[in-house]
């Protein structure tokens, strides 16, 4: 069943998220290919930048602290997108849903202790080739009010 276009413009949020050092490390190493175990995010593969997991190296580096791997932003910036997908009024068939497209813009680095506030809205709903497309935008600001991450999230629901 096609999604109802009258939900275009619906807003979600604000959602607040505090960035923690261990979570940054865990994410960077999971993307980077480490094998986590109980009590450890795993051994960093050689290609993973120490700026992402080694606090001492990072403090001596260009950002004076650990930084997030850029796409760590999805951990909090996804909230409006997941809220839209789970919106009972929109009634998305989760089993038929795949993530179609993604754009992320990074306007600053993210460090432990940053408090991110994310808002978002449904930008578009359309049908193409027997599939429904749901496009949600997100904007995440840090504790100083600076916009740090902008996202465009596109879900494809097969079978319309």
């Amino acid at each position: 069943m096609a999604l109802d276009k009258r939900f275009i413009g619906r807003e979600y949020g604000p959602f607040t998220y505090t960035i923690g050092a261990e979570k940054l490390r865990e994410f960077a190493l999971a993307v980077g290919g480490a094998r986590p175990g109980a009590g450890t995010p795993g051994e960093p593969p050689a290609h993973v930048s120490p700026l992402l997991y080694d606090a001492r190296a990072a403090k001596a580096g260009p950002y004076f602290d650990l930084i997030a791997f850029p796409s760590f932003a999805v951990v909090f910036a996804v909230r409006p997108f997941s809220a839209a997908i789970a919106d009972p009024e929109l009634a998305v068939n989760m089993l038929m849903l795949v993530h179609g497209e993604q754009e992320l813009e990074f306007l600053d680095v993210m460090r432990p202790g940053d408090v991110m506030t994310t808002t978002g809205r449904i930008e578009n709903i359309f049908d193409k080739a027997r599939m429904s497309f749901l496009v949600v935008s997100s904007e995440s600001r840090n504790q100083t009010g600076k916009t740090v991450v902008k996202g465009t999230w596109t879900a494809v629901i097969r079978g319309g």
Binding site: L51, P62, I67, E101, L104, F106
Partner: peptide, 8 residues
């Protein structure tokens, strides 16, 4: 990794 500006 801190220099990444955008991905699509």
């Amino acid at each position: 990794p801190g220099r990444i500006r955008r991905v699509r």
